[in-house]
């Protein structure tokens, strides 16, 4: 488990990127629930934290592949492989992630 002190939890539908032991993780909040997935798109390795959150899905900024933020599954677009989903909670105001 990795705890981030002093990292602001993103607002609903906004994206931030954090580093955990060399892995970049994209973090957002959907319906009050913090969600975290690997930041690297499984299609062409674009940074998903530069993308967009739409209806509980994360949209890659490069080729608009869409991933389910809850499961990491590909919803549509070019990616073939799902995203890794991190366990994410906010505890005492700080973000905690676990691979």
């Amino acid at each position: 488990m990795h705890r981030f002190e002093g990292v602001a939890v993103p607002a609903e539908g906004e994206l931030v990127a954090v580093q955990v032991h060399g892995t970049k993780v994209a973090v957002t909040v959907v319906e009050g629930q913090v969600r975290a997935v690997d930041d690297e798109c499984t299609h062409q390795q674009c940074s998903l934290s530069d993308g967009e959150v739409e209806d509980g899905a994360l949209v890659c900024p490069c080729h608009f592949g869409r991933f389910d933020l809850r499961t990491g599954a590909v919803l549509d677009g070019p990616p073939e492989h799902p995203l890794h989903v991190w366990k994410a909670v906010v505890r005492d105001g700080a973000l905690e992630l676990e691979r």
Partner: peptide, 8 residues
């Protein structure tokens, strides 16, 4: 260099 705004 701004795929997010293209999407929007």
């Amino acid at each position: 260099d701004n795929g997010r705004d293209l999407r929007r």
